[in-house]
Amino acid sequence: MSVSKYDELEKFAAELRKSIIIMNCHAGSGHPGGSLSCVEIISWLYCNEMNYSTENMNDPERDRFILSKGHSCLSLYAALAEKGFFSKEAFKTLRHAGGILQGHPDRLKTPGVEFNSGSLGQGFSFALGCALGAKRAGRKNRTYALLGDGELNEGQIWEGCMFGAHQRLDNMVGIVDYNKFQSDDLNTNITAIEPMNDKFKAFGWHVIEIDGHNFREIENAFTRARAMSGKPTMIIAHTIKGKGISYMENVPKWHGSLCPTGKERECAMRECGCEELI
């Protein structure tokens, strides 16, 4: 891929970060940390990886993206707006009663959303069902599910892993946004997940480990996933929670429904390149 393409992706990702902070400030809340950590992955999926049309989200041939870590929906909303599913005006009414963008994805309210995630573990199984349905119908479309690292605490994830490998769902890609933090603290202080790579391998998945902020590595991983036959792929993307906003990076409190105020808001606006203070 040419350098300018990577530049385009970097620009797209920067726009997403800006949108995330703008939404966060309009709503006064909204899980910024985990939304910022998965920006590059979502950028890649919506710019380069997936086959979809804003005009026809009922097309059975479309690729599916399931945000299983539903609380990081600001990142998804930002990408959907950037791609024209709806106007950025909708950012102003995030979490408002009548708004089309809510605290967790709602497929009935938000164009482009496939699944009402929010309860962790469930989106992954849903995605596996989409992948199985496509296989049995002989369709070539692919399914992508983005998981949180804390989400791996859920037993249902491991039920799904057994199932996906057993059904040889090579049209399915899971991505772990491995930012090392869950709501309360570091994963390692809550319930240790390591060795994550070996766990997925032992469950029969094709595992690739990358820097989740590096587009070259992201491209390489998705290319290898596409080439894999007979196994589903799990991409473990090492990321930084709160990536892009200096004081949010690796600070657990920015996981939750928080919004920067005062000097912190000014700093966030400046760092994400937002000209007007909200």
């Binding site: 059975p60 992954f124 069902g129 199985l132 249902q156 799904g160 199932f163």
Partner: peptide
């Protein structure tokens, strides 16, 4: 091709069934 005997994993099965249902099954 339309018969699945899955494991003892009700949570995953219902999610997967929902995915298949929204896929037209």
């Amino acid at each position: 091709e339309r018969f699945f005997m899955e494991g003892i994993s009700e949570a995953n099965i219902l999610g997967m069934a929902a995915g298949m249902a929204l896929d037209g099954w």
